[in-house]
Structures are given as structure tokens and as C-alpha cells.
């Protein structure tokens, strides 16, 4: 394969290297090397000021023997169960509604999309107020006295509601694009056959939009597995439900930067990435059963 390059080809190659150099150097320094360091640190004890001592799999042993860690893992999985199916189903409903001939379609789209451009910190602050147990408007409307954020049984649910509220418009816009790609002739041919709207949805719409639906689900799942900011904002250190609502990434933050145990924190983040990988693989394996790629 050793061929002499012509001068023009050589110049092209040099330009190629020069133009990717900033990105590649950046990625190696900022991401590739830190990734290796995190992996290594997960087998170390942090002695302070960035110094580490190798201790083998001790962090993992500690982690797997820690009830708080398992609770956080379950909380993360539970949060995904609460947000992904409901969130994506609601997004699909909104997309279907917007795909009909409606007036002010752009206006509705703008409204549903609005939470996405608001910083999660600000969004969570507003919802803390709505969920407030004593004076929150939600309890006033429901006529109940639920301590949404401090009751262990509702704390995650409250965060999940905020999460779905924040992301549903974004998912709907993606799904709407998928719906608009479905050719009208498919529906016309189908309605001559006398098929009803509901059958049409299951025989045409759902299979045709399934690739988009799948990618939205994967994206939402990955985002939910990494949930951190909403929990950080809605939970306080004094919150009695803290252990019942903290996710893996929140536990990672507390272990690494509040408690300063960066070896243990690294082990948590490695575990989380492994979990994300596993769940994604299961999704990709499961998609063969319901995603249609051939037109």
C-alpha cells in the first residue's frame, strides 16, 4: 500500500492534519486523557489536592456494599421508568395534534418548546414554589396537603413531572418532523380501503414514525440516566427525602465535590456509564421487534 503521494495530495494531507489538530488536541487533553484518569482514579483513594493512592477494587467493594448507592441506582432507574415512557407518549400525542390542520401551529410549537431555553436551575426554582407543601398552588388546586418534595414517596415523582414538562415540547418537535415526512399518499390509499383513524394510526403512522420514536427514546433515556440539575435544585441537604430522591449523578457530585472522595466518585461515574451502555444496548436489541426501517 506504500504509494508516493503527489505534491497536491501531500498538501491536502497536511491541510487535513492542520485543520483537525485543534479539535484532536482538545479532545485528547480534555476528554480522552481525563477518561483514562477517571478510570484509574476509580481504583484509587484520593489523598487530597489531586494525589491518588492505588487501592485496587476497594472503591467498588465499598460502593456495592453501600445501601445509599443501591438506593441511588434504583432512584435513577425509577426516574427513567417515570419519565421515558410517559414523556415520549405525551410528546407523540402533542406531535400528532400539531400535525393536524390547526391554526397557530407555530404559536403552539413556540409555547411547548419554551422550557427548553430556560435554565434548568430557574425552571426547578419555579416548580419548587408550585410544589411547596404549605402554600404551593398545586396543593391549593388539588385541595390536598402533599409534601411533594420532602415526602420520600412523592419526591422523585415531583422531579419526574418537572423533567417531563421541560422536555416534552422538544421531543414533540422532533417527532413532528418525523410525522411530516410520512407521505400523504399512504393515507389516501389507506382511506380508500375504508380504514378508520385508529387503525390508520397503528398500520401507517406508528410504523412510519418508529425510527424517530426510537431515537427520541434513546436520547430521553440517556438524559434521564444522567439527571442531576433538577434534583440538585429541588433537594436541599436538610431534605428528609434526600436519600430517596438522589440520582447516581447527584450522588457522584456529592461524593466527589462535597465529601471530596474523588476515587469513590469516579467509581460511581464509571458504574453509571456502564449502566447507560447496558440500557442502550438492550434498547438497540429490542428495537428489532418494533422499529421499521424499510419504507
Amino acid at each position: 500500500m506504500k504509494q508516493k503521494l503527489t505534491p497536491a495530495e501531500r498538501r491536502e494531507e497536511n491541510w487535513g492534519w492542520i485543520m483537525v489538530a485543534p479539535t484532536i488536541i482538545g479532545l485528547v487533553v480534555l476528554n480522552l486523557w481525563p477518561f483514562v484518569q477517571t478510570l484509574y482514579a476509580s481504583f484509587c483513594e484520593h489523598l487530597g489536592f489531586g494525589h491518588y493512592k492505588f487501592i485496587g477494587v476497594q472503591n467498588y467493594i465499598d460502593m456495592f456494599g453501600n445501601a445509599e448507592f443501591w438506593k441511588a441506582t434504583w432512584n435513577t432507574v425509577y426516574f427513567c421508568i417515570l419519565t421515558v415512557p410517559v414523556g415520549v407518549a405525551l410528546a407523540l400525542m402533542i406531535a400528532l395534534l400539531l400535525n393536524a390542520k390547526v391554526k397557530f401551529k407555530g404559536g403552539f410549537r413556540t409555547i411547548f418548546f419554551l422550557p427548553l431555553v430556560c435554565a434548568p436551575a430557574a425552571v426547578a426554582m419555579v416548580w419548587r414554589w408550585i410544589f411547596n407543601g404549605e402554600y404551593g398552588i398545586l396543593n391549593q388546586i388539588l385541595g390536598m396537603k402533599i409534601q411533594w418534595i420532602t415526602n420520600p414517596r412523592t419526591a422523585i415523582l415531583a422531579v419526574a413531572i418537572v423533567s417531563v414538562w421541560s422536555s416534552v415540547g422538544y421531543d414533540a418537535v422532533l417527532l413532528l418532523a418525523g410525522l411530516q415526512n410520512i407521505s400523504k399518499t399512504l393515507y389516501e390509499a389507506n382511506s380508500i380501503d375504508g380504514a378508520g383513524k385508529i387503525r390508520q394510526f397503528f398500520t401507517i403512522t406508528l410504523p412510519m414514525v418508529s425510527p424517530t420514536l426510537f431515537s427520541v427514546m434513546i436520547m430521553r433515556l440517556m438524559a434521564s440516566m444522567k439527571i442531576y440539575d433538577l434534583i440538585y435544585m429541588m433537594a436541599d441537604d436538610t431534605n428528609p427525602a434526600l436519600v430517596d430522591m438522589q440520582s447516581l449523578m447527584y450522588l457522584f457530585y456529592r461524593s466527589s465535590f462535597v465529601a471530596g472522595d474523588r476515587g469513590y466518585g469516579s467509581a460511581i461515574v464509571i458504574w453509571t456509564v456502564g449502566l447507560i451502555l447496558l440500557v442502550t444496548l438492550i434498547q438497540f436489541w429490542g428495537q428489532k421487534k418494533w422499529v421499521t426501517y424499510d419504507i
Binding site: 479539535t23 484532536i24 479532545l27 485528547v28 480534555l30 476528554n31 480522552l32 486523557w33 481525563p34 477518561f35 484518569q37 477517571t38 482514579a41 440517556m222 440516566m225 444522567k226 442531576y228 449523578m249 457522584f252 466527589s256 474523588r262 466518585g265 469516579s266 461515574v269 464509571i270 453509571t272 456509564v273 447507560i276
Partner: peptide, 16 residues
Amino acid sequence: IVLVQMSLPSQIFIIP
């Protein structure tokens, strides 16, 4: 390298 970075969550890089 670009693809690897894209598929990893940013938290894995934060401590280093």
C-alpha cells in the same frame, strides 16, 4: 476519537 467523546456523558471527565 470524536465519536468516543460524543458517546460518553460529560460527567466522566469532570474530576480530571
